[in-house]
Amino acid sequence: MHNLQGIKELYDSVCLKDDMTAYQQLFLVMETPLIAFIKALVGATEVAEELYSDLFVKIWARRKTLPATQYPRNYIYTMARNLALDYLKKERPLHSIEFHEIDPLTVQDQAPTPEEQVISKEMIRKIESAINVLPARCRLIFKMVKEDGFKYKEVAALLGISVNTVEVQMSIALKKVAASVKFKTLAG
């Protein structure tokens, strides 16, 4: 139940029915991508995990007053971003978030789609390697769009950048991944 409709159903059950089982399922469904997102902002896995736990404590505590929304995933990501930014303000009051400071993200293993099943394991490895060597900013934007399914506008809002910047970064990422895979395929 990782699709957007499934997340909405879980969110609605938590907010409207005080459904603890739905809350636990929502926690598990959102855990991996949200911890990776928070880690990209704060730079430390342990801090990201703590902030993720804090986020879900807030969700449960505020479940009666959370807004009814068509896009709860976006709302939860915004809450996570705000928690991460609050943490950074407390920890590094004189610094802003610099994308070159973000630790490299690991590519998550997910159940293969039909398209991925057609591609050989070797090609998947080459694509993952190409993604892992992208600059941190490109990699974060690429993963949010391609793996987490966010629209460019949503990524721009969550990261506080322009849609044009997202488009440029995606173009750079796609060109580098394609060139790397093509070159490695011909050379390998």
Results as ranks from 00 to 15, higher is better:
S120F: 14
I119W: 12
S53Y: 06
Y87G: 01
P104H: 07
T65W: 04
Y87P: 02
P72W: 00
A111S: 08
E91C: 03
S53E: 11
E46L: 04
L66F: 00
P112A: 02
T65H: 11
Y71N: 14
P104W: 03
E116V: 07
S96A: 11
E49N: 07
A61E: 14
I76T: 06
E115S: 13
T113P: 11
R92Q: 13
I102M: 12
D86C: 06
K121R: 12
E46I: 04
E116G: 10
Y75A: 00
Y75E: 09
M123E: 15
Q110P: 04
Y87M: 00
Q70R: 04
I76F: 07
A68I: 14
K89P: 11
F99A: 15
L94E: 13
I97H: 11
L94G: 10
Y87F: 15
L83W: 00
E128K: 12
T113Q: 12
M79T: 02
N82D: 10
T113G: 13
H100G: 09
Y77W: 08
L88A: 03
I97Y: 10
E101L: 10
V47S: 02
T113W: 14
V107F: 09
P114R: 04
Y75L: 03
W60H: 00
K89G: 10
I119A: 15
K58T: 10
A111H: 07
L105Q: 15
